[in-house]
């Protein structure tokens, strides 16, 4: 079957892939060659080809995280040619297509690098630090049942839209991976902003930002130095404005909350 671009020629590529058997082991870059890669393939489909080749050759396939392959679950997490999710802006690895590469290219593929994201195996990393940050306060404390009617509190469309834009974070970790400081501020700020903007989040506004920032620091992420790599590499376009909101929320909470600890 032909693809959407019948004139596209198949490509041969050299891959330099980080291989590491498990968390404790030393890793290294290993070179592989893949042939007849269609430009219409997604990047992960190209890796599928590599893995099928490896398996046929009796070698261990490359472990990598992926799931929905439509850019929303946030599972895929490859550092491709020195960039989070590769060269295309606003794109997850699974939505990156091989037409962005050329025949004969050498592609370096590494896992996210951060102390807080240890490598499980090869290209798969442990991002549970993100979950723990959310557990520290990234929610509205409402139990199931007893919620007032959804239309009880009108929310200006503009506010709802801004909250939505912050809420679209997929938790992939590209921001941490791209940041020189391995800072998780963009991730944290997206959740803090979303809930700070909405009236529902207002009740726990102060404790939320205090606890989430404390957890972020505890996990060992770096501090933001406003470089902007995170927002530039974010596949869903979370804006740096959120980090300013986080800073502001943090400062205001620390200055005015009753929390002496």
């Amino acid at each position: 079957m032909a693809g959407s671009n019948p004139n596209a020629k198949p490509m041969n590529l050299t891959l330099k892939v980080w291989r590491q058997p498990n968390r404790q082991a030393q890793g290294q870059i290993v070179e592989y060659h893949v042939k007849d890669i269609s430009p219409d393939m997604s990047f992960l489909e190209m890796l599928d080809v590599l893995n099928e080749d490896l398996l046929h050759a009796g070698q261990d396939p490359v472990a990598f995280d992926h799931d929905c392959r439509e850019g929303i679950c946030g599972s895929c997490d490859l550092f491709i040619n020195g960039r989070s999710h590769g060269p295309e802006k606003g794109t997850t690895t699974c939505q990156l297509h091989m037409r962005k590469f050329s025949d004969g290219d050498t592609i370096t593929i590494e896992p996210w690098r951060a102390n807080a994201f240890p490598v499980n195996k090869d290209l798969s990393v442990d991002r549970s630090a993100f979950d723990r940050i959310i557990q520290a306060g990234g929610y509205v404390s409402v139990n199931t049942g007893g919620a007032p009617d959804g239309n009880e509190i009108p929310i200006p469309k503009e506010i709802a839209d801004r909250a939505f834009e912050a809420a679209t974070c997929i938790g992939c970790g590209a921001c941490v991976a791209a940041c020189k400081n391995a800072s998780a501020m963009l991730f944290v700020s997206a959740k803090v902003s979303q809930l700070a903007l909405l009236p529902q989040g207002n009740v726990e506004r102060k404790t939320r930002v205090e606890n989430m920032v404390a957890q972020m620091d505890k996990e060992g992420f770096g501090a933001c130095t406003n470089i902007g790599s995170c927002a530039a590499e974010c596949p869903v376009g979370i804006s740096l404005e959120n980090i300013a909101i986080l800073n502001r929320e943090f400062l205001a909470a620390k200055a005015t909350s009753n929390n002496l600890a």
Binding site: Y139, V140, V142, T144, G145, A147, P148, D149, G150, N151, P154, I155, P156, K157, A160, D161, A163, F164, A167, Q194, L195, L198, Q200, G201
Partner: peptide, 19 residues
């Protein structure tokens, strides 16, 4: 819907602020 709104799910809204 009520539960999700209370959780802070940012549903689309009209200009008047309603869902």
């Amino acid at each position: 819907i009520d539960q999700c709104v209370a959780q802070g799910v940012p549903f689309a809204r009209e200009y008047g602020g309603l869902l």
